[in-house]
């Protein structure tokens, strides 16, 4: 029995087909598992293990290396505030404190209503609009306590539903189709290209 919904399962199988080795689909597939469950459930991990030809311990171990994967349930919105060097110089730490107060939960935890999880992040590569805030890995560009509070209220009221999907959904643009350069065709092309090259080298010699 598949734990993945049929659409997720299908996308997961499509992913495997994109790589020369099935394990390569691990990270994108873990994102898919999070898209379904919001975090990495034991069942999701087991299914990823099955599809990538690994053990659940390996999937768990691999996932736990990466900050974006959550092995415990998180809020619908994961709010990340950067405090790294550029944001630090722009008051990132104080900003994070404010966020914690506004959301009513300490850094690294989830608000009582289960809606928000607050994280302190490393540099999010948007340093000209510091301090940088991401919600579910979408830049929200709220650099003052006031704009932050307004943004949180908008999230609560659903005004930002289009911009910020719930946690786990990462890439909403789906790849159109699988691989197109068929293996045999590619091998033939390599052969032709090599012949052409050799011919040219020959003619240059003459």
């Amino acid at each position: 029995m598949s734990h993945f919904r049929s659409d997720i399962r299908q996308r997961a199988e499509e992913l495997v087909a994109l790589y020369p080795r099935q394990r390569s689909a691990m990270l994108p597939m873990l994102h898919l598992a999070q898209e379904q469950d919001g975090y990495l459930s034991d069942e999701g991990i087991a299914e990823v293990a099955e599809l990538t030809g690994t053990t659940p311990a390996e999937v768990r171990g691999t996932a736990a290396f990466y900050d974006m994967f959550h092995l415990e349930p998180v809020g619908k919105y994961v709010v990340g505030v950067c405090t790294n060097i550029a944001c630090l110089l722009a008051g990132g730490e104080e900003f994070l404190e404010h966020a914690s107060k506004k959301l009513g939960c300490p850094v690294g935890s989830t608000s009582d209503d289960g809606l928000f999880t607050l994280e302190e992040t490393e540099c999010l590569a948007d340093c000209n609009i510091a301090p940088v805030v991401q919600v579910n890995h979408r830049y929200v560009r709220t650099t003052t306590p006031e704009t932050f509070d307004a943004m949180i209220d908008d999230l609560r009221s659903g005004k930002l539903d289009h911009d910020v999907p719930s946690h786990g959904t990462l890439i909403r643009v789906r790849r159109s189709g699988g691989l197109r350069a068929a293996r045999q065709e590619v091998a033939d092309q390599r052969q032709t290209a090599k012949a052409a090259r050799d011919a040219r080298v020959e003619s240059e010699k003459k």
Binding site: L170, R180, Q189
Partner: peptide, 13 residues
């Protein structure tokens, strides 16, 4: 006669 596939691969932090 050149063929190519590009796969976009997300990291995870």
């Amino acid at each position: 006669d050149f063929s190519l596939d590009i796969v976009v691969h997300p990291g995870a932090g």
